[in-house]
Simulated assay, not measured.
Amino acid sequence: MLTRRHAIALAAALSLASVVPAAAQSVTLRSADIHPDGYPTVEAVKYFGEVVSQKTNGRIKVQVFNSGQLGQEKDTIEQTRFGVIDLNRVNTAPFNNLIPETAVLGLPFLFRSVDHMYKVVDGPLGEEIAKAFEPHGLIVLGFFDSGARSIYNSKKPIKTLEDMKGMKIRVQQSDLFIAMINALGANATPMPFGELYSALQTGLVDGAENNYPSYESVKHYEVAKYYSLTEHSMAPEVFVMSKRSWDKLTPADQAIFKDAGKQATLKMRELWAKRDADAKAVVIKGGALINEVDKKPFIDAMKPVYDKFVTSDKMKSLVERIRATQ
């Protein structure tokens, strides 16, 4: 990982952010994503770039580096904070240790539905959480859908808590997700997403947890065919911009970026709904075995997770207000 000094030096050398506001010269901003080309998040950020380019008459362009070309999420977050990368699409989970408010969004079984999640992140609560990013050098341009995450593995269908015992389950590099999987009786194994296929293939881990499009896009169903509908998390993705890059924009360009972020969010959700249905069909055709889960015991097992992570009055208030959102 880049040290602070090296990140700042590299940012200065690249000078991407430093030239945006100065004149009408053309500049290309770099955006990172770990997902492959064609994935809804990647296509939505491309759309964002089209809107920005159109509204600035081609003065500002966006180049999307997909498939982890600029690094895994944990590394690209640091680079974005220091302005080495201008834009970044990341799951909220890797931010949990840095920005406690994001941990609330990933709490298991908190959102009743995708629509409930939209109402939360698109309203005052979403604005409140977005503001918590700014002291850490990031500006939120949109909350993308991440679908419902479920557990999949190479051994057997997960139907009860007993089935989880002793299984090695890959999780994101987040204390919250580690605690959640451990609370279910499995052994949480944090690792970068890009390393997961081989880990499943070699038996380094037994399974993982994610949504249908992620499960399908990197062909995890080939090496872990049991997909169990725990639907334990609906944590959104977040599309952020480096505050160093943002501060170099004129107020007029900032308004363009904010509007483009909203348009890209709607585009992503539209693309996501179709991709989710298509991905489910692909994995079933590819041999995935999908089963329902009695969720109540899984929900009941989450009390220690809430006790551990929802400790401050601020976080307790966020949870209560999210649950109260209709």
Rank of each mutant, 00 (worst) to 15 (best):
A9D: 01
A9K: 12
L10M: 15
V19D: 07
A24C: 00
S26A: 14
I34G: 00
T41A: 12
V45W: 01
S53W: 08
R59Q: 15
V64S: 02
N66L: 00
Q69P: 11
Q69G: 10
E73S: 13
D75P: 09
T76V: 07
G83C: 04
V90S: 14
P94D: 01
P94M: 00
P100H: 10
P100F: 03
L105A: 09
L107C: 09
F111C: 01
H116E: 06
M117I: 04
V120E: 01
V121G: 06
D122Y: 11
L125N: 07
I129Y: 13
K131L: 07
L138C: 08
I139Y: 11
F143V: 02
S150Q: 05
Y152H: 15
Y152R: 08
K155H: 07
P157A: 08
G166P: 11
Q172I: 10
L196Q: 13
Y197D: 04
V205P: 14
V205H: 14
S214T: 15
S228K: 08
H232I: 05
S233V: 09
M234W: 07
F239I: 06
T250L: 01
A252C: 02
Q254W: 13
T265R: 14
R269I: 02
V283Y: 10
K285I: 03
M302H: 06
S312Q: 02
K314S: 11
L318V: 07
